[in-house]
Amino acid sequence: MPNSPPAGCRAGAPDLVGLLVAGLDEQALITLDADGLIVSWNRGARLLTGYREDEILGRHVSCLYPPLHIADGIPESDLKQARCREKIRYDGWRMRKNGSPVRVSGTLRRLLDDRREVLGYGLNLRDIADEGPALPASAADAGSTSALVQAITMLQSEVAERRRIEHELLQLQSLLRELAAHQDQIKEAERKRIAREIHDELGQNLLALRLDVSMLMARCGSRHPLLSRKAACALGQIDAIMASVRAIINNLRPGVLDFGLHAAIEWQVREFQRRSLVVCDLHFDHAEFELDDHRATALFRILQESLTNINRHAQAGRVSIALKRSGNRLSLSIADNGIGIRPGCRRKANSFGLVGITERIHHLNGELTIDSTRGRGTTLRITIPILPEDD
């Protein structure tokens, strides 16, 4: 009668080898699947790295490598070498859960099935910090290397965080620009609506009132001189109100924009000359053409803001404005012979003139160049596509 198998080999008996491996304290015994994912983790691995089994299972073995090794692809290289050479040995650094490095000696061995296909890998690691350095020349060098690894790890973490913040800031900047452009469009549409309502309602009512007062003054004549003077006074006040209404309408949105960009620029230049007494030269190198309202309004506002800045700050005696067309590009240049832009004035607090101009041009996919020499004036050159570039 054959001998009975030992109790430990009977069906249902506990896995004594597995229990032995799991309970080893001196070495980290880890198994990986064919992709390098951790599938088993013993007590020694927990003591060495600080990771509990439930925290580490399913993660890639690269999580135990220093960040620089990960960036250089060393974890993947180790797996590839073990797959080709059966096993590899190494002394080096691995990372604990708390981010500190630990120097280990270990072996990474491939595990094959009956058909000699790779099922996974066996990894054993042993802490050799107390055995003296294998690579550094002294214990002081080992400590320096450890500190260096920690410093590099912290720097890499900081760089990654800064990159994340920079990416978020760029996204926020893009969103703010889109919001500002949307607000500009809404503002221009609202200005246009209010200007037309003032013209159609208030303007027409004032005109009707003026006609009535004019008729009253004509009928009074010399028969009622006091009433006639009162009517004349009221007529003068109505005319002043109508002039103010026209100015308000033009400030909201000049009606001349409806007649084209050339007409609007000519009107704005005349108004600037009348208010500032600055001589202006205006040049167009092409005939009037159809430009969409959004772009025409944006160019008009840029010219308006530029002339306002010249009047406030440049102390100029002459301004030259030129509008040129080249293919699908439209260029506007505004040059003055004033004192120029002082260094730092472009970033001056509460000064948003150039900022507003820059944002308008950016939204139109245009370009802005500013040439300024102290005492010799400033030139702004704005170039935008006549049609949207994706058209």
Rank of each mutant, 00 (worst) to 15 (best):
I310A: 07
D292W: 08
L303C: 14
R295H: 07
D239A: 09
A314F: 14
N328L: 08
H262I: 07
R219F: 13
H199F: 03
A231E: 07
H313P: 04
E190H: 03
W267M: 15
A322R: 06
R219A: 12
G327N: 01
G255T: 13
Q237N: 09
H283D: 14
A240H: 00
F272H: 05
F272S: 11
V256M: 06
W267Y: 15
M215F: 00
H313S: 05
R246N: 07
L303T: 12
D212H: 13
V245G: 00
G317S: 12
S228D: 12
L307S: 03
P254H: 12
N309S: 04
G203P: 04
A296Y: 13
D200I: 08
A287H: 09
S214N: 05
A208I: 02
R229Q: 14
S222K: 08
S244E: 13
E305I: 10
R196S: 11
K192D: 09
L209D: 01
Q204P: 02
D212T: 10
K230W: 11
A218E: 15
E190L: 09
I265K: 05
S320A: 15
V269K: 05
A243I: 06
A296L: 15
E201C: 07
L207I: 06
L291W: 01
P225T: 04
M217E: 15
D212A: 15
L299V: 05
L291A: 03
A243Q: 13
R193G: 08
A218W: 15
C280Q: 01
N250V: 09
A287I: 09
A263R: 09
E271H: 14
Q204F: 08
L211D: 04
A314C: 11
F284I: 11
T297D: 02
L277A: 13
L261G: 04
D293S: 15
G317F: 08
R246W: 02
A263C: 10
S228F: 11
L209R: 01
T308L: 12
V278W: 02
H286L: 09
L299Q: 03
A243E: 13
L307W: 01
Q268G: 05
D285H: 05
A322N: 02
A247D: 13
M217L: 14
A208W: 03
N311Q: 15
H199P: 00
G255I: 06
V319K: 10
F289V: 09
A264S: 05
D258E: 14
L207P: 01
R312P: 13
V256P: 02
D292S: 09
L299D: 10
G255S: 12
R318P: 06
I194L: 04
I310E: 08
K187A: 07
N311A: 15
A263Q: 06
R275N: 11
P225F: 02
I248R: 03
E266H: 07
E288I: 11
D200L: 10
I321P: 01
H313G: 05
S326K: 14
W267S: 15
A189W: 04
N250T: 13
G221V: 02
V213K: 01
A218C: 14
D258V: 04
L277H: 13
A189C: 06
A298M: 08
H224I: 07
D285C: 05
T308F: 10
A195Q: 06
A296W: 10
L282N: 07
L299F: 07
R253G: 07
N328D: 14
N250A: 14
L299M: 12
H286Y: 10
V269R: 05
G236F: 05
S214F: 05
V269M: 07
S228V: 09
